[in-house]
Amino acid sequence: MAQKSLDNPNQPSRLRALLARSREYAPVWTLLALFLFFSVYSDSFLTMENMGNILNQVSLLAIMGTGITFVLLTAQIDLSVSYMATFAGVVAAYYTAAHLPQPWPIFAALLAAAILGWINGVGTSRLGIPSFMVTLAMSLIASGLSLYLTRGRILFDLPPIANTLGSGRVFGLKWLVIVAALTLLAGHLVLKYTRFGRYVYMTGANPKAADLAGVNTKGIITAVMVIAAVTAGMAGIVGIGRLGSATPTAFDGMLIDAIGAVVLGGTSLFGGIGGIPQTIVGLLILGVLRNGLDQISVDIYMKTLITGIILLVALVFNILFAGKKEG
């Protein structure tokens, strides 16, 4: 509009930039607010040890969330990740119990997850099944495979690598946190600095336009579903090491938290907007909230309710900050 009379071109764009930034940073304010609140109202919250706890608590979610970020950026969803994590953990333990030499059980677990992810991807992109449905079906398949392989029992023979990464330390740091940080970093580098990463964003922003520009959007969608499955598989392998056993339902309950953290950070469910930095913020919001509620004296039967309410408020906040673009 009226680009012809550019008497003061800076003002509107600066205003818009400011608006855009406040939208981007809404989750950060939420995080800071929660952080401050718990620091003030709890003596045990703001300690080095507890900060370490928070990181430890969100690490599995972080590994899983990295893959989910890719999927959401293409405007798809994956409801099978937590079941894939369980399944990968079971496969790793199963083949370890079957005396397959190490590290082959790990590879088998990741490959199994990748295959399921590939089926998700092909079902979505080539066959045109909504990812919501195809991954919902896949969650049952992964869950069913876990039950079938374990016959419902708990497996205690774990790959040594899983034990190390899940509960070991190096230089005083938990391996689990390091794995999570490296996964996030790798995800960030791929999304921000590779051609593939750009294709992921563009596919989510406007799949039709990406097609028209020659982007192989079907391939991109298949690839992100495989990535989500593999990161879920990694979370499952590290996760059994942390738990000390593989059960047929070990990580099933993580689904809502994993997707929730990514969305809470500001990655759009409609694709094209967001990224790993946002996911990190979302993970920390969730981590601080869960941990902080443990530190202050709240009726333990109220905690889930309070978590839900705070998440809802945070999401409303995000939307309000997003505001409306002036046409």
Partner: peptide, 22 residues
């Protein structure tokens, strides 16, 4: 249907040529 409205102009222009540019 041909443009990415929320993306900067340069990303709209360069998309078909990314493989050539780098």
């Amino acid at each position: 249907s041909g443009l990415f409205l929320d993306k900067p102009i340069f990303q709209n222009v360069s998309l078909p040529w990314l493989a050539h540019i780098s």
